[in-house]
């Protein structure tokens, strides 16, 4: 029986919405988290000259025949969990074996992926996204990645307006028992006067793009779900993640030429889902900022009425408009 395999954390509630939608449509769903392997899930698969990988995954509640997998939804699963008594060295060894064995079998499945894990992983790199977006014809902000102060000063001198800095990777970390985050910052003259510590790692700088508002464009397959994001505070205007309470959302439509280029970018990145961030200037130009292959979407669905969960279910079931 055709089955949609979902690999996601158990507490990822937006995935619950996808499960419910699939089941309402009569689909068979097998959901698991990678954390269930190997202690709560068994895997066995064989391959030979005559047959592709054949076998399955068994948990205490259900069994999956790999041959039945018609589609797979991959959404930020947790790491494998191993027996308590393992040494650190044994756990690292076991984790590498599990990744190559369990992960290797699953990623070899020839089915509809939303999206394939290796494509998602590669697409998470902002420098790669920016290069691909540019090649697809999407306007991007002039960008510098460096660990050299003189390069930042030269970049700031070349850019006619303000420049911003933001993390190249995750903005969140924990130190001193406290969770901290780094938002986009418009740099001041004082900021540009002291670069102590810049040489310690890669830093990203961009030209500030004048904006009327931002757009979160959620792409599911070829279907666009666009939402204007407005903020009435300085913090939210600079980086909307820093002041969610100030935000209002409006469903909107992206210009046809932008959609065409975004679809080309999705093909280039081999993604079937992407949460894109755009700046829209006061004169209506759209500038690509980034795409999150595993971006959040549930709150956009709630705020705008866009049927994103339904779109993901359509994509997994091979339904086209």
């Amino acid at each position: 029986m055709p089955t949609v395999l979902i690999i996601a954390a158990r507490d990822d509630w937006p995935t619950d919405r996808v499960v419910k939608t699939l089941e309402e449509r009569g689909a068979t769903v097998f959901r698991m988290d990678a954390a269930e392997f190997p202690e709560e899930a068994g895997l066995s698969a064989r391959i030979d000259d005559s047959h592709a990988w054949a076998g399955g995954v068994v948990t205490s509640h259900r069994a999956l025949d790999l041959a039945d997998v018609s589609a797979c939804y991959f959404r930020a699963p947790n790491p494998f969990r191993f027996a308590e008594g393992m040494s650190d060295a044994e756990r690292r060894f076991a984790a590498a074996q599990a990744r190559a064995g369990f992960g290797g079998i699953l990623t070899a499945l020839d089915c509809r992926w939303v999206s394939h894990p290796s494509a998602m992983s590669r697409a998470e790199y902002k420098p790669y996204q920016l290069a691909a977006a540019r090649e697809c014809g999407l306007p991007i902000p002039p960008t510098l990645i460096t660990n050299r102060a003189d390069a930042v000063q030269a970049f700031a001198g070349d850019i006619p307006g303000p420049i911003i800095c933001k993390p190249v990777a995750s903005p969140v970390f924990i130190e001193g028992d406290q969770l901290k985050t780094v938002y986009t910052r418009v740099l001041t003259e004082d900021d540009l006067g002291d670069f102590t510590g810049i040489e310690t790692t890669a830093h990203l700088f961009q030209a500030w793009v004048d904006k009327a508002y931002e757009v979160r464009l959620t792409m599911v397959g070829d279907r666009p779900f666009a939402a204007e994001v407005h903020s009435d505070t300085k913090a939210g205007y600079t980086d909307w993640r820093s002041d969610y309470k100030s935000l209002t959302y409006e469903p909107t439509k992206a210009p046809a030429d932008v959609i065409e280029k975004v679809r080309a970018l999705m093909r280039r990145l081999e993604l079937r889902f992407g949460a894109f961030d755009f700046v829209v200037s006061p004169t209506g130009e759209w500038t690509f900022l980034e795409v999150n292959p595993c971006g959040q979407w549930d709150w956009i669905q709630h705020a705008t009425g866009h049927p994103i969960a339904e779109g993901i279910a359509d994509e997994l079931l091979g339904v086209t408009e």
Partner: peptide, 10 residues
């Protein structure tokens, strides 16, 4: 902490 838009990477 909640998951982030940025995905599974560090």
């Amino acid at each position: 902490p909640p998951p982030l838009d940025e995905g599974a990477k560090d």
